[in-house]
């Protein structure tokens, strides 16, 4: 059995890969949700963790993981970001120092298509599809071959999770068009059954939104797109992103209920999975935390997916994920 839990962590990203008693964490924002969940699952050791890029909403929880006394982290992959002189980056360094002092964690400061290239977690192989080594070396603050600015988001790692030949899952971090082009220039295979959409469904900084959506959708060709968003923060996911995605006739699931979809929170528990979801106590969850089955089709169990769709149909006033009737 291998699966991935994409947690409802409000604004931010956090995924847990479980396979044959091996565990992997990709990103974690602030709060105790991941730590509490791992403790309750009886997980005392994380074999590997990834930080896709140097943003607070992806790092803060990993800091907690590094300092945790109950959960050991064995290996951490991340790209250094020389541009990041932020407080949280220094906090991360302190946490790494703590882990190193305890001799418990191996920190590998490259996360590119060549190094480590692939990482195995139980039966699951994690393919690093971006950034390329040269792109990562150029780093944020520089420009790409077309003269476009490379930002922290551009060097987000694209991680494709697969078990054998089965359709996989693509975790896209906060990648933008510049970073995506880096992967496409190297002819990386990005196809996946499920795409955790970059940047929480927020607008990419400097490109044509529709073109970006088209590009990533045709490269990944997913049947399910997940937005890991926070209700009431940054107004994500944006309708400019959601509607072209919806028009591709693929399923959409947001961890939280966007303000545009429902003005008031909805306190309805029936359709949520038993995992912790940050929005649950405040009625902010839509799909909440989601389990994706890597051993099967790479999507959610059908019963949860149906329950979620019914929840949207019955209770959500103006769901963005529904293509307007005129289009149908």
């Amino acid at each position: 059995m291998s699966d991935v839990v994409v947690f409802d962590v409000a604004h931010g990203n956090c995924s847990l890969v479980r396979s044959q008693s091996a565990y992997c964490v990709v990103d974690a924002p602030l709060g105790a949700l991941l730590l509490n969940t791992l403790e309750d699952m009886g997980i005392s050791c994380i074999d590997v963790a990834f930080i896709s890029h140097a943003d607070k909403d992806h790092i803060a929880g990993v800091i907690g993981l590094l300092s945790s006394a109950t959960i050991q982290l064995k290996k951490l992959y991340l790209n250094p970001d020389s541009q990041k002189r932020t407080k949280i980056w220094r906090d991360l360094l302190a946490a790494v120092s703590v882990a190193e002092r305890q001799g418990s964690c191996e920190v590998i400061s490259t996360l590119t298509t060549t190094m480590p290239g692939t990482v195995t977690v139980g039966d699951v192989v994690i393919h690093v599809e971006a950034p390329s080594a040269s792109f990562a070396l150029a780093g944020s603050g520089s420009v790409d071959t077309q003269g476009r600015h490379i930002t922290s988001n551009s060097i987000s790692a694209l991680l494709r999770l697969k078990q054998g030949d089965r359709p996989g899952i693509l975790l896209a971090g906060d990648i933008d068009e510049v970073g995506l082009d880096d992967a496409l220039n190297y002819d990386r295979d990005l196809t996946a059954q499920t795409l955790v959409f970059p940047h929480h469904g927020g607008l990419p900084a400097s490109s044509d939104t529709t073109a970006f959506v088209d590009k990533i959708m045709s490269a990944v060709n997913p049947s399910l797109v997940i937005f890991s968003n926070g209700r009431g923060k940054h107004d994500n996911p944006r309708p400019e992103i959601v509607s072209p995605v919806a028009r591709k006739r693929c399923a959409i699931a947001c961890t939280q209920l966007a303000g545009r979809c429902s003005k008031s929170p909805i306190f309805n528990l029936g359709h949520l999975e038993p995992h912790r979801a940050y929005g649950q106590p405040t009625g902010a969850s839509c799909a909440g935390s989601m389990t994706l089955d890597l051993a099967e089709h790479g999507r959610r169990p059908a019963s949860y997916e149906r329950a979620h769709q019914k929840f949207i149909d019955d209770l959500v006033e103006t769901p963005m994920c529904r293509v307007p009737r005129l289009d149908k």
Binding site: L35, I63, A69, D91
Partner: peptide
């Protein structure tokens, strides 16, 4: 949870010390 606590400011007055701290994985 075992957590980092960053010291951001120290105010030592006559008879007591006040610490201003941040907790990176609570609200950095």
């Amino acid at each position: 949870h075992r957590t980092l606590i960053g010291i951001k400011g120290i105010n030592r007055t006559y008879n007591h010390t006040e610490l201003y701290v941040t907790i990176p994985n609570w609200r950095p």
